[in-house]
Computed example of a mutant assay.
Amino acid sequence: MRTTRDRIRHAILFEAIGLVFLIGGGALLTGFDVQALGVIGVVSSLVATAWVFVYNWLFDRAMLRIRGSVVKTHPIRALHALLFEVGLLVILLPFIAWMLNATLWQAFLFDIGIVIFYLVYGYVFNWTYDRIFPLPEARAA
């Protein structure tokens, strides 16, 4: 299982890299103001940083209980990414609607693009992170 220090490094790297893509790519693809996207990005990043720490801890505890290991297969990684994004969507949707002066439905549609990006990004980032910083169990195997 990962240490607290490793989880903090993971969360910071994930959010910093994702924020660069979200603000820059979001402005290019949607035409929304960079400043509005920046506020949404920074607030979302702070919320997501806390969420990723709590969520990964809970997910790993559930994996230990169910499977006896925190080593993730590809299907488990896909489920992990999907459940993370659903939780984050529920947490952030009202804020995004408020920031964009939009209905919840409009904010939901906007957020779907962000969710799709983060599903792919989360999978690739976590796979890469596990290769660069392997779990102690994976090193021993």
Rank of each mutant, 00 (worst) to 15 (best):
F21Y: 10
Y121H: 07
P75S: 03
R65T: 11
G31E: 04
G18K: 03
R61H: 07
L28T: 06
R7P: 02
F110V: 07
A36L: 13
I66Q: 14
P134W: 05
F95V: 04
I114P: 00
Y118C: 05
F32L: 13
F32D: 13
G24V: 07
R65E: 12
M63I: 00
P136H: 05
I12M: 09
W98L: 15
F125G: 06
A140R: 15
F53Y: 15
I91F: 13
Y55E: 05
G18C: 07
T30D: 01
F32C: 01
L19G: 13
T49Y: 09
W98K: 11
E85L: 05
D111H: 15
S69C: 03
I132Y: 09
A81P: 00
D6S: 15
L93I: 12
Y129G: 01
M1T: 11
M99K: 10
L13M: 13
P75R: 04
V52F: 10
Q35W: 15
I91A: 12
R9K: 09
R65G: 02
L104R: 08
I114K: 07
F133K: 06
I8C: 03
Y118H: 12
A138H: 10
H74W: 14
K72Y: 00
L82D: 00
R2G: 05
I66K: 15
L19I: 09
R65Y: 09
L19A: 12
L13Q: 09
V86N: 02
F53R: 08
M99N: 05
E137D: 13
A138T: 14
A102N: 09
I40N: 04
I132A: 10
I12Y: 07
L83M: 06
A78Q: 03
F108L: 14
F117T: 08
V43C: 03
S44I: 03
F21C: 08
V34S: 07
A16F: 14
V115I: 15
M63D: 14
N126Q: 12
H10A: 01
H74N: 12
F133R: 11
R5D: 07
W51E: 03
G68H: 04
R77E: 11
G26K: 07
A97N: 04
I91L: 14
I91R: 02
I76L: 12
L89S: 14
G87I: 12
K72N: 00
E85A: 05
Y55V: 10
M1E: 09
Y118P: 01
R77V: 01
H74C: 04
I91E: 02
I112C: 08
I132E: 02
M63P: 02
N56Y: 10
A140M: 11
D60G: 00
L58C: 12
T73M: 05
A50P: 00
